[in-house]
Design a protein around this nucleic acid. Structure first.
Lengths: 177, 177, 177, 177
DNA sequence: TATGAATGAGGATTCATTCAT
DNA sequence: AATGAATGAATCCTCATTCAT
């Protein structure tokens, strides 16, 4: 019975992700429930309201990202960054970001975001320290910039934007403008 | 009365831009009308439905961008690109992009987008030809990349992302990864 | 100037009749005004509100019918009835009847209806008296029956319904059922 | 719950019929829902929009009429016609006809109308063949005429109009005019 | 427990009517 | 006097949420 519940929860989240991706954030709870082959009532048993569902999706995605960042702490910083970028390409980060933008962050989401920022900033600091990354921007600025690269619909680790950005960050020379 | 009507139309568009920017695309027509100090009926006289309002905002922004691109055709290509980036920083392009993503493009919006793409691609081609820009990406790829840089909330001509991107594009060397 | 006003009034009534006939009673005041090549304001100068317009149409049609009935008082009763039926075929009586059904009758419309009923009933009485019409129904019943025949969309003086009815009324024999 | 839902559907249809009959086709969905002691939402769960409600009322009335016509196919034609007229007197056919006139017929309503016309025409043909009905009109003309008699507010099987019409149809003699 | 029917507040849109030009 | 822009109440409809089965 607990297994059933867990399966249902997964189906709901999966259905929601799929529908949000395909039809935008306006998808109705009923549609999500149907796509998960469940009644609305069951959806509401798992998530007290729509915000809870959205928050759950956002938090689980962010949690996975944080864990990924944690797990690569022992790598060289530049390699770890590349890893993170590759990892993100397979995640619905663009979707989650825009969904989450709808509502103010819950405390736990805020905490997650903070942790990710800290981990990322730390990574960047180490990269700069090892002269793998240009140092004329603060780690926070660079973190913001990477966020854009990552939280983009259809972002891939080897698409032009990512490539040019990483190229631009790799060096230590001043601006060309 | 013609003058009044024009003023009202401007107030509606202004109010809509402000509210969309602040509270997202879910703002109600009533709220927009109130923010413009008008009755809903007036809003609907100017824009037959919500989509028409959104389309109008999108198209006028895109038209201005196209005109800007046209008017800088006689400059050197790199300087023209910088000009465009600076111009876009002052425009609600991020907003317009996300709003427009809600609905499929109208024919005239599609045409505008096409024109802008053509102008931008041409600019990039010329920049590559003059060795102002790396040539290991197609002009279309670079256009896509610049679109991201430009259609970003809070984009500025001298913020880190833009700077790094332009740096990364300026050179002619291969990838550092 | 008075001539203009009269012409405008006629155009409004004409446009309204046409649109009501074609698109039903839901036609908007704006549409009527446009069809009359006038602004709504002008329409409202002539008719204080929608009901006034509808009433006017109804009353002018009923007035004409009453006048027609009056003018044939000197004929033989059966011939006068045939005349009335022929006259009605060219009038928008079906339309007016259904329009008027929307709202309770104004005093003057009620008066007109009463006059018409009286004239018609009188005609029928005379026809029965002259043995031109079967007498097993009261004049009021026969008046009601003729109303149906007449206030029908597309009624014509020689269509099957009218023909059969007049046949059925002409005789003096009892029911065939 | 299935039983409840069915009951609710019936209450909606009943309320709608009553209100349409009393206050015309302009009754609001909210009023119908209130008269059925339900929320608007429930009304819309049962009927996706206003047209669906009207269509449903029309189609169920027409279906019943068709079934009535079918079930009397084995009777003598004249008796079957009388039966139909009697049956119709108890049905809201006038209402349904005027409601349905609001919108173009749905395919299934069109089919029903066609079937009814065919059955009625056939009945008339047989009646003419057995010399129960005058033959100087085509069956289609007579069908049209009967439609008027039947689809009239307050039609009864023994009211003057019906009586006179049936009288007029019974015989085989030419017009009296 | 899962279901889906019921609810009703809220948003989009229309249109009769008023009023500034 | 004519015009058509402005108004907002009224209507249709949606959808998050609750609740009876």
């Amino acid at each position: 019975m607990r297994a059933d519940a867990r399966r249902n929860r997964q189906r709901i989240v999966g259905a929601a992700l799929g529908l949000f991706a395909e039809h935008g954030p306006g998808v109705s709870m009923e549609e999500i429930a149907q796509a998960a082959d469940l009644g609305v009532g069951t959806l509401y048993r798992h998530f007290p309201d729509r915000r809870a569902l959205v928050e759950d999706i956002a938090e689980s995605t962010l949690t996975a990202l944080r864990d990924q960042l944690c797990s690569s702490r022992k790598m060289g910083p530049w390699e770890a960054l590349l890893d993170m970028v590759r990892y993100c390409a397979g995640q619905p980060l663009a979707l989650v970001t825009s969904l989450a933008a709808t509502a103010p962050a819950s405390p736990s989401r805020a905490r997650l975001t903070g942790e990710i920022d800290a981990l990322l900033t730390d990574l960047i600091k180490r990269a700069q320290h090892e002269n793998d990354m240009r140092s004329d921007f603060t780690p926070e600025q660079i973190a913001g910039l990477l966020n854009v690269a990552i939280c983009r619909p259809g972002a891939r680790a080897d698409d032009p934007l990512t490539t040019v950005l990483l190229d631009g960050l790799r060096e230590t020379r001043p601006t060309a403008t």
